[in-house]
């Protein structure tokens, strides 16, 4: 029994049942399939996490995001006073995380690719795009550049899903996706 020493001293010569071997082989091959699936997705799949990342001083990232926002600001989001930036399609986009907001609000065109720059000014945050459900960890001092292509129009929210203190659950940002060529700020304010 499993609570006693093996009854035969030389237990490593005992034969293994054929059916047990079959299960081991199936499980091993399934492991190879699952391993291969991740490699395959890097070659053929369209949802892979970017590995482009740089060390950056949080103050510099804040400055760049502010400049970006100033350059592309089209309006303010409702009555909140948060600027909405509508960058050129295919261009660089900045969004910063800090206690407790994602800034600025972005307006993107459907079907166009953007280089999204993400970083935090203070603690770690979690970029969680809803209801699309894309989740990326955001670190202070690291600028993560992700090429992203929205495939549907609408209003999307960025929730923080890394605990960041007492205001964590109030940290919400927003991304609008509009049809290409539609006029900026044409929607009711």
């Amino acid at each position: 029994m499993a609570i006693h020493p093996p009854e035969r001293r030389v237990w490593w010569n005992e034969p293994i049942e054929k059916d047990e071997i079959i299960w081991i082989v199936i499980a091993f091959l399934w492991g190879l399939v699952m391993f291969g699936a991740m490699v395959y997705w890097h070659i053929e799949g369209r949802q892979n996490l970017s590995t482009q990342a740089y060390r950056i001083d949080p103050a510099l990232f804040e400055k760049r995001t502010a400049e970006f926002t100033k350059q592309f600001k089209v309006r303010e989001e409702g009555t909140t006073g948060i600027p909405v930036a509508r960058p050129m399609a295919g261009g660089d986009v900045y969004m910063l995380a800090r206690l407790w907001e994602w800034w600025p609000v972005l307006e993107l065109e459907k079907g166009r690719s953007y280089r999204l720059h993400l970083s935090s000014l203070d603690w770690q945050h979690g970029f969680s795009l809803q209801p699309v459900n894309i989740n990326i960890q955001v670190h202070p001092g690291i600028e993560h550049v992700i090429t992203m292509t929205p495939t549907e129009t609408g209003t999307f929210s960025v929730v923080c899903n890394e605990f960041c203190g007492i205001g964590h659950h109030t940290m919400v940002g927003r991304i609008h996706v509009v049809e290409p060529g539609s006029t900026a700020g044409s929607k009711p304010q």
């Binding site: 929730v159 659950h169 919400v172």
Partner: peptide, 23 residues
């Protein structure tokens, strides 16, 4: 699977400046 964050006090986001609610 529906996107709800872990370690989160308020899935209704009632105190957030920008409104959002999970399905």
């Amino acid at each position: 699977t529906l996107g709800v964050a872990r370690r989160h006090w308020d899935v209704a986001f009632s105190d957030a400046a920008l409104s959002f609610a999970y399905p």
